[in-house]
Simulated assay, not measured.
Amino acid sequence: MKIKGFSFSAVKAGIRYADRLDLGLIYSNIPCVTAGVFTTNQVKAAPVILDKERLKSGHAQAILVNSGCANACTGVKGMEAAKATSSLAAEALGIAGDLIQVASTGVIGEPLNVEAFERSMPALVAGLSGDNFEQVAQAIMTTDTVQKIARTTVTIGGKEVQIMGMAKGAGMIMPNMATMLAFIFTDARINFPELHKSLVKGADRTFNRITIDGDTSTNDMVLVMANGMAENPWIDGDSPEEQQLFQDALENVLKDLALQIVSDGEGATKTITIRVCGAKENKDAEKIARTIGTSSLVKTAFFGEDANWGRILAAMGRSGVRFSPDRVDLAFGNVLLVKNGLSLGKEAEAAASLILKEKSFAVCIDLKDGPGCEEVFTCDFSIDYVKINADYRS
């Protein structure tokens, strides 16, 4: 995977584990219009704090990212480490320090191994190539079992624009925004207000619609870098049609990555779309869908392939949204299980249980109370999730 003007590199720095890619660098030949969205957790890692401050300029030229250590809850020394590592990269690249974005993922509360960055920086910079995109996608993995990458093209003003991205995330996933790292690259020519607007809207409809375990992390961010090398007509406030084309293409990439994260949820065996319609407003539909998608009882029933619709109704009832239980229809896939709040019987449950054996399916709910309709994407909750997180630090 290549994109004009961007190069990538990853090395085995030994930040936490030996003999695995754990330090990545993404570099643009020229400074990029850059937008970001970040975790809403009150406990924010040093990289998040530093990046938000630097992005006030709306520009960046490189991203330095490590796995193995989150550099979160590390106090003043953590911020010093984030600045020191970005300075190492800036010096090696010959660019201004404030054009470096830093990102970390891994164990919280442990100091960042700055010496590992210092040892590895020459090889990291020397390895920059347009061919190494997938190596960086591998270097940012923690409990992920697969790389998460996506790509699309769109024609804007007669020019082909590329958008491609990578993400990591398998646990501590209930973004708002967002429990993971995602880096998106495009050669589009687009002004910052339009890029930021497209990212915020796209993230809200994709990354902010996924949940694996209801936990929002301390480090999470999505960054989009646009270097303008496609030479399309500028996307700005006077080009709403072009912005919509870009928005739709960006959202396709974000959704692809978001669904890959859900599919790779720690211990997950199934990917489930929770679709709630007929609510008074969209926000009500989303709130109900999110409550269902984060319910441990619902998610364990999915894992056990038990068509226990009562758990879903119970989750809806504690969502904080007022609705009429005696009007609710509920289906698993194309199997209607509940009509006007009442079970359609054992035969319907048996048919619904067959739907639960599939790797991917939808739970469809109709409240019959208005035009509001939203989707949330989740996964089942397996025994392996507990095993993975019980000894994550070992």
Rank of each mutant, 00 (worst) to 15 (best):
V276P: 00
C379M: 05
C373N: 10
E160H: 10
G127I: 07
N334K: 14
K83S: 11
G278K: 12
L337E: 07
I184H: 07
Q135L: 15
L25V: 06
S28N: 07
S353H: 01
G214P: 04
T142E: 08
I184N: 07
R311D: 04
E80T: 07
V298K: 06
G36R: 01
T179P: 00
I163F: 11
A116F: 01
N219L: 01
K159N: 11
D215F: 14
S67L: 13
C379W: 08
A315L: 11
G109D: 04
G24P: 01
F323I: 02
G171T: 04
G341H: 14
V253N: 12
L254S: 05
P122A: 05
N308L: 02
N132K: 14
S319V: 00
K270T: 02
I388V: 15
M121W: 11
K299P: 07
T142S: 13
A82S: 15
I163V: 11
E374Q: 09
E194A: 09
P175V: 08
H59F: 14
Q243M: 06
V321W: 04
L64T: 06
A249V: 08
E241S: 08
Q135C: 07
L330V: 08
A70Q: 06
A230T: 01
A307L: 00
G75N: 13
I312P: 03
G171P: 06
D264L: 09
R16T: 13
L223F: 15
L50K: 08
T211C: 06
E134T: 13
V107P: 01
D366E: 15
G109N: 04
S120C: 10
S353L: 02
D248T: 11
Q162G: 15
S382G: 02
G214L: 09
I100V: 12
A285C: 02
K2E: 13
L330Y: 13
A60Y: 12
S87D: 15
M121T: 14
S239P: 01
F377H: 11
T269R: 14
V386K: 03
C69W: 00
E266M: 08
L195S: 08
A35T: 02
G130P: 04
T85A: 03
P47K: 07
G333M: 13
F302Y: 13
G370F: 05
V146P: 00
I140V: 14
D264H: 07
Q135S: 13
A348N: 01
N282F: 14
L344D: 12
S360H: 04
S198Q: 01
K357T: 07
K339H: 14
K283Q: 11
V276A: 10
A188C: 15
T74W: 00
T153H: 12
E286L: 12
L199V: 07
G75L: 08
Q42C: 05
A350V: 10
G36W: 00
Q147D: 04
K4Y: 04
K283C: 05
L342M: 08
T186G: 04
Q260E: 09
G5I: 02
I108R: 05
I355R: 04
A81L: 03
L55N: 10
A351I: 03
I3W: 14
V33D: 03
T155M: 06
T155Q: 14
D326E: 15
I312A: 09
